[in-house]
Design a protein around this nucleic acid. Structure first.
Lengths: 344, 344
DNA sequence: CGCCAGCAGGCATACGTATGCGCATATTAT
DNA sequence: ATAATATGCGCATACGTATGCCTGCTGGCG
């Protein structure tokens, strides 16, 4: 208190007051073993007293480590603001928390994948590495990801974890989650389970969820019926449209597993319009457990991903790369949240 | 391409290749008038060629400007992760966009207001200024804000804009928004309008909304009835509880203006349980236009805040301070979104 | 033809920290 | 007692950019 503003204390000021040299201050504050305990504590006291804090720019410049990671959201369908997938926003909380726990700063940006932002961020030493978060057509991103790998940029991606993914990837066990949903519906006696969601290589996460559903059905000796799978992207409208398509096909079904909650909500709207009851005529399971899922009527049974774990794993995986350590395994278990859309 | 990684080009490399001195490179790339056009273009070409990008740390260190702002979320009720107010998350999109447009980086953190994080961020030159975002008991924050002002920290806060606010503040015109909601309900012939939301000095934004409602009623010669105001914080449960209280009071009401969408959603649930129809028995207006608002049955009439404008204004106000320029005015108009909870 | 103005760019240096290396003093082994 | 080792700290310097000041040159004008 009292020092004229714009005249922030430096490590030299501390050194002077402590009667030591500037390097000693630096070492002391970083906890180097080569400063005696007494000296260190004296320096720490003075630093606290002066309200000193290490200049981040000087420190990063000298050490070539920014202790900062950059979070890049990308989504292809929405060039407009605000319409961010609620699931990712929830994950943001977990990521910031883990960054805080590890003493990292977090830079954030929403970008189209076209910009070369991602490269720039590491080149300019703003960040030590990147977290890439986004749904969208995976095949469109492959080239970009390959570039990143080629440039030696450290990054980690949220998505489908498989053999052919490019770069370190962290994701839920989507196959297991699909199996979870399938088992649940099968336990309830449902046999004609529809899947709403793009299930091709462009959207591997959705495809995995479908594969898990098929696994569960196969375990009961039920062959998947292609007529019960309808493509749909993440949005509510898509869920509505897909359900209309499904109904239009005239094949009977007694359950729906939707690849996202928004799809499920759209589906519920379409079912209501068609005079079908939930869960009476059709049981329905969503995916993501977005806040709105518990607010629908009936509340939506869904799959909850481990977002806290996801945030930790993303950050840890990135740091492991930067520090040249072995990467932790990349998949996280998901959990079924039963609500009245299946059990009512 | 091709340069060994870890050997990033510097301005010296460019200078060498261009046959000029390093300072000239710096000036050229920053667009200084004292570099000839020809030289500048030559330098720019080489820089592009080498995939050069200015080292952010060195630049910030030297210029004492980080061109970065820090966004601090704080909410008192949720020490747990994830449960972030969706409204703020939507605003995040607008803020990042404006930061991008102004060439600023954005640091982000969720914190309890107790930590001295906010001071640290500017002291350590991580950020030029802070954006403070959070609901919560305003009176609890006053001391912190006063400290920030005292420390000369640049910041801007989202909240109620009034005479007694501490530090530069940006917010919606909550009084006007309340009037908007009131006028709408009055136009529909409703006369007994309840308000659900804390309306004291601890939550000035809510109080302003209530004041606007009272204004609108007063303009029609209707005196506000204290029995029709029930305290409620932001959450859905609170809305449910408040509505039960309201019903329990036995005073007749034909409309509800809720201080937030989540309160409104809770209210709708309580009304349904009590056998009251929306909008037949009770018309209801929310606030925020969160994504779930259009998914309720019936869809919720609500007040939409100008989030794009808010993001711009927050960033612009902060930058104006840093650059020692006059601050733009701090209030933004809100808009009524009519859905079936009032007009059905 | 000489003088002053203005343009383009170079020189030197500062920003604040981190770290390799060397040098005392203190400690132990021989 | 002397050599070997450890401990604690200072010296010098590097990180890469931005900027105040000065210089050399060109051109216009009296």
């Amino acid at each position: 208190m009292g020092r004229p503003p714009g005249n922030k204390p430096t490590s030299f000021d501390i050194a002077y007051l402590a009667g030591v040299s500037q390097p000693t201050v630096s070492r002391a504050l970083r906890g180097s073993r080569s400063v005696s305990r007494a000296t260190r504590e004296r320096i720490e006291a003075i630093a606290r007293d002066l309200n000193y804090s290490v200049d981040k720019n000087a420190s990063s410049l000298r050490s070539q480590r920014s202790n900062t990671i950059a979070l890049l959201f990308f989504e292809d369908p929405t060039p407009d603001e605000s319409n961010i997938n609620p699931f990712f926003l929830a994950m943001l909380g977990a990521i910031t928390r883990q960054c805080g726990a590890r003493g990292l700063d977090l830079l954030i940006s929403f970008q189209k994948m076209e910009d070369d932002w991602h490269v720039r961020y590491q080149d300019s030493h703003r960040a030590d590495g990147l977290i890439l978060l986004g749904y969208g057509d995976y095949t469109l991103y492959q080239r970009r990801l390959t570039e990143l790998v080629g440039a030696g940029t450290y990054f980690v991606r949220w998505g489908s974890v498989g053999a052919d993914t490019i770069g370190p990837t962290v994701g839920s066990d989507n196959v297991g989650a699909g199996r979870l949903a399938g088992d649940h519906l099968l336990d309830l006696g449902r046999r004609r389970i529809a899947f709403l969601g793009q299930a091709d290589e462009h959207y591997p996460e959705f495809a995995d969820r479908y594969a898990g559903l098929c696994d569960a059905m196969a375990a009961q000796g039920i062959a998947p019926d292609p007529a019960l799978q309808v493509d749909a992207l993440t949005a509510e409208d898509a869920g509505h449209a897909a359900t209309m398509t499904l109904i239009g096909r005239g094949v009977p079904f007694d359950a729906i597993f939707a690849a996202s909650d928004l799809i499920a909500i759209g589906a519920m709207r379409a079912l209501a319009e068609a005079g079908l009851t939930v869960p009476g005529d059709v049981a329905i399971v969503g995916f993501d457990d977005i806040p709105a899922a518990s607010l629908t009527t009936p509340p939506l049974t869904t799959i909850m991903q481990d977002m806290k774990g996801a945030g930790q794993l993303l950050v840890d995986t990135l740091v492991a790369q930067v520090e040249d350590q072995p990467l932790p395994p990349g998949t996280l278990p998901a959990r079924l949240v039963v609500r009245r859309s299946t059990s009512g």
